[in-house]
Nucleic acid binder design. Structure first.
Length: 499
RNA sequence: GCCCCCAUCGUCUAGAGGCCUAGGACGCCACCCUUUCAAGGUGGAGAUCACCGGUUCGAAUCCGGUUGGGGGCACCA
């Protein structure tokens, strides 16, 4: 009945495909993964798809893809949605294990640990409402425990199908939680709960217990929201004569208002973060520190380093707010740690085809330290591939003016800029030369360099905030720079021509 | 309502009786660097360690209570 400590360690993650991979599920999966890898145990993926109404294969695909994206791998389980299972304890999808659950439920029925319940959802609702009115705890009233043969005959005549309800032994249950220590519950306060629906579909509390036993799971690490479900599971484990695994309940990830992180108040789908250009390394690092720390002041860790350091004993008990500012910061750190070649590869999918691979590689150094997310890249490089007309149409004439400068003065500056560009042949058209000439021109004009660069920046990139100006000009090429400066001049001078 | 869990700067956290006049990071504010924005550098504000009692020569650290927050009580997972 109790866990024999000599069993080889096996941990698992058990996502439900009722939605795409949730941040919280990802973090729980990560902790399980880190735990299993740290102790050299086996890591299992089991798909909890008993909710036929809400589960989809698309979600299963999303979960598997995003787990892989994070770099999390498992030793047993489906590697691809709908694909072959790997491992000796399969199938690893609950929807493929129904005979097993039926057999286990039959055992419970046989020895009286469970019984048929003929109550309809409407009847149960009514009872619950009644209990609420009387300020009683909302739990099953045990009606079907005391059925007469006549009742039974009538239900059958009505064509009702029974659910199977587990008879919870009214006893105190204690367990030693891996993160919280000794926890005690009184199961006398629990109502008997349904383990198999009318119609034969088994429910979560039951299948999770059956599968953890049959898959030889020794360590159940899950969110704190399951803490008060654990005594139910232990009661089931005992009734079925199973071995009791160790339980560890990790703190919840919270919305800004400290409630359990939800779709309603936060972005919870991992895919969304991925699409916004968060790096999996940053996400993993960030998630790991939501409820755990190595006990030092170090904070940048790869997945492998995390696995080397991770201890369940260092996991916190209190929930942690998901702080996107911190994620953003970490993402920037990871982006900047990439080589230009690596970053070019990662950014490629975020950029339009109009930019070829070599152009991407050339802009990367200009935007690297300006990126928070990869999806920031298109805006930063837009000046490169946007048609000149679009760039020119993108700003108002007065945006060209440096602070305190009039349109007339701006026209003069633009004029000087056009001239200096014209004087350069293609071979000389480099950032260094451009900068030297521009500074000289500014001095000649008696302008501060920054003031002189402002109209050029807007003219050339269409924006007052851009990557470094002269490198941008070099990338753009002499002709396009000239065209854009000319157009800007026309705009500010109301159609007047360049000198 | 009942049961359970939790409680260090706004946020993530260090801290496992004296090293703490509580450290780091994010964010915020200044300044420096600087062609914009970033990045980087330096500095700053920010926590009577929820509160109240106890134990102790000594408590953020141990104990009790209070308050506050969260989670769970489905024929969802």
């Amino acid at each position: 009945m109790t866990d024999d400590e000599t069993r080889p360690i096996r941990a698992r993650m058990a996502p439900s495909p009722t939605g795409p991979l949730h941040i919280g599920t990802a973090r729980t999966s990560l902790y399980n993964y880190l735990f299993a890898r740290h102790v050299g145990g086996t890591y299992v993926l089991r798909i909890e798809d008993t909710d036929l109404a809400r589960g989809t294969v698309e979600n299963e695909q999303d979960i598997i893809d995003n787990l892989h994206w994070l770099g999390i791998t498992w030793d047993e389980g489906p590697q691809v949605a709908g694909g072959e299972d790997i491992g000796p304890f399969g199938p690893y999808r609950q929807s493929h294990r129904w005979e097993l659950y039926a057999a286990e439920a039959a055992k419970l029925l046989e020895d009286g640990s469970a019984y048929h319940c003929w109550c309809t959802p409407e009847e149960l609702d009514e009872v619950r409402r009644q209990q609420e009115r009387n300020h009683e705890p909302p739990r099953y009233n045990g009606r079907c425990l005391r059925l007469t043969n006549a009742d039974l005959a009538q239900f059958e005549a009505e064509g009702r199908k029974p659910a199977i309800r587990f008879r919870v032994p009214p006893e105190k249950v204690t367990f030693d939680d891996l993160v919280r220590g000794e926890v005690e519950f009184d199961n006398a306060l629990l109502g008997d709960f349904v383990i198999v629906r009318a119609g034969g579909v088994p429910l979560y509390h039951f299948v999770v217990v059956v599968d953890d036993e049959k898959m030889n799971i020794t360590h159940v690490i899950r969110g704190e929201d399951h803490l008060s479900n654990t005594p139910k599971h232990i009661a089931l484990i005992r009734a079925l004569g199973y071995r009791e695994p160790r339980f560890g309940h990790i703190p919840l990830i919270l919305n800004a208002d400290r409630s359990k992180m939800s779709k309603r108040k936060s972005q919870t789908a991992m895919t969304a973060y991925r699409e916004q250009g968060y790096l999996p390394e940053a996400m993993v690092n960030f998630l790991a520190f939501l409820g755990w720390s190595p006990g030092t002041e170090e904070e940048i860790f790869s997945l492998d380093e995390l696995a080397g350091r991770f201890e369940l004993g260092q996991v916190h008990k209190a929930g942690a707010v998901f702080d996107q500012d911190r994620l953003d910061h970490l993402n920037g750190v990871y982006i900047r740690s990439l080589t230009d070649e690596q970053l070019a590869l990662r950014i490629r999918p975020f950029l339009p085809d109009a930019l070829d691979d070599s152009a991407v590689l050339r802009v990367v150094p200009l935007i690297k330290e300006r990126l928070v997310r990869l999806s920031d890249a298109p805006e930063l490089v837009a000046f490169l591939h946007e048609p000149d007309e679009a760039v020119i149409a993108g700003y108002l004439p007065e945006e060209l003016n440096a602070k305190g400068k009039s349109a007339a003065e701006t026209a003069i500056a633009l004029d000087a800029a056009a001239q200096l560009v014209q004087e350069l042949d293609d071979a000389d058209f480099s950032a260094d030369v451009l900068e030297a000439r521009s500074r000289a021109a500014a001095e000649q004009l008696g302008w501060k360099p920054g003031d002189f660069f402002k109209p050029i920046r807007v003219a050339v990139t269409g924006r007052s905030v851009s990557p470094p100006l002269f490198s941008s000009m070099e990338l753009l090429g002499r002709d396009r720079v000239l065209a854009r400066i000319g157009a800007a001049h026309a705009k500010v001078a109301g159609g007047g021509s360049l000198a």
